[in-house]
Nucleic acid binder design. Structure first.
Lengths: 190, 190
DNA sequence: CAACCTCTTTGATGCAGATCAAATTCTCAG
DNA sequence: CTGAGAATTTGATCTGCATCAAAGAGGTTG
């Protein structure tokens, strides 16, 4: 699985990639693999890299009263990191865990900084790809505020039908902010 | 109230502003004023500009069963627009309403496009300032999922203490996803 | 200053979903 | 295969908040 086959096409949705940028990128990303259950990032450290998921499934979670609360799922074609920790270079509460055997392309924060400084189109890529996440977050906020458990689950099915069968339901429940029991009843149609 | 006094210092939190960029910016922003209750943007149109609030208070809302649901408040030092409409150049559901007499600096989408194309540091500014909104959205999602009405209100007081006394409580309630009655009881300490 | 808004509070009732407990099914290591 | 732990479902009870209804409290306009 080559970077040229996954990462570059992803980026080309937003920007044209020059030969120089292509070379700089491929020189700096490192392939990485994680087994099921393995942590890509531990909250006790500062997050110093971003991983582009080529194959597999990752969740972002944090601990609340000893329980793991899922904040986000990321599958093929998405970058994962601990957002605030990565940006501010400080520890944060989030862990990243591979839910399946996962292959990524890993980019260190200082290499990303170099790319931003050297290739203005990288700034544009980051701006545009962040923008597309924005709409999702706003939809999610609306869904959390004003919908029943049944509607929340229906909305999740709509927006995540591709990964739904790969997810344990307890994680889906905490993502939706409902209990596992309620999710089970909703699925059974009650 | 000069752009040099409000917008430029805001941007300088993130980037250094060259003389050329300064001039380009000041040439393109237009001062605008809105009375209390006036719409900065109507959902029936495509949102073609962003407004930087110099003085005043604006809310983003949408209609749900004929009721106005507040999605966001923006005060001095923030950009407001209808995010998806502005980015995708399509209509969306959101209205922007001035809650107080409001003065803004207004920038047309095509002028912003020109600035992005001409000044790479503008791309960086957009990327970094969006990044800082991200953390807030994630906190808000957590607050919506797992907290009682009382905790939601406490979190709102923490994060919006500067504008709280300027807001009608019904708008705060819909922002928090609780009813006005519940908010009233929570504030009374019950 | 009275009449009429809009905003906020108070009261009574009902229900969706949390919580606690236990049974059932799945899954995978040995 | 098989047994143990994890994931999921089912059941019974309880509660926080929504809903419906109406009464204060401001505030602004002729």
């Amino acid at each position: 699985m080559l970077a040229a086959d996954t990462l570059l096409p992803h980026m080309e949705q937003y920007i044209r990639i020059s030969e120089a940028l292509r070379e700089a990128l491929l020189n700096r990303v490192r392939v990485a693999s994680y087994g099921k259950g393995q942590l890509l990032h531990d909250a006790r450290h500062v997050c110093t890299r971003s991983d582009f998921v080529q194959r597999g499934l990752v969740r972002l979670y944090y601990l609340r009263d000893g329980e793991k609360i899922t904040e986000y799922f990321s599958a093929e074609g998405e970058w994962v990191n601990s957002p605030n920790s990565f940006i501010k270079r400080l520890p944060d509460i989030y862990y990243l865990e591979a839910l399946e055997p996962t292959h990524t392309l890993s980019l260190q924060v200082q290499d990303l900084g170099y790319l931003f400084d050297t290739f203005p189109e990288m700034e544009r890529y980051a701006r545009l790809s962040m923008g597309s996440v924005f709409g999702h977050l706003m939809d999610r906020i609306t869904s959390l505020r004003f919908t029943s458990a049944k509607e929340k689950y229906a909305h999740f099915c709509d927006t995540h039908h591709d990964i739904l069968p790969r997810l344990p339901l307890g994680m889906v429940a905490s993502y939706l902010g409902i209990t596992q029991e309620t999710l089970s009843r909703v699925r059974a149609g009650r």
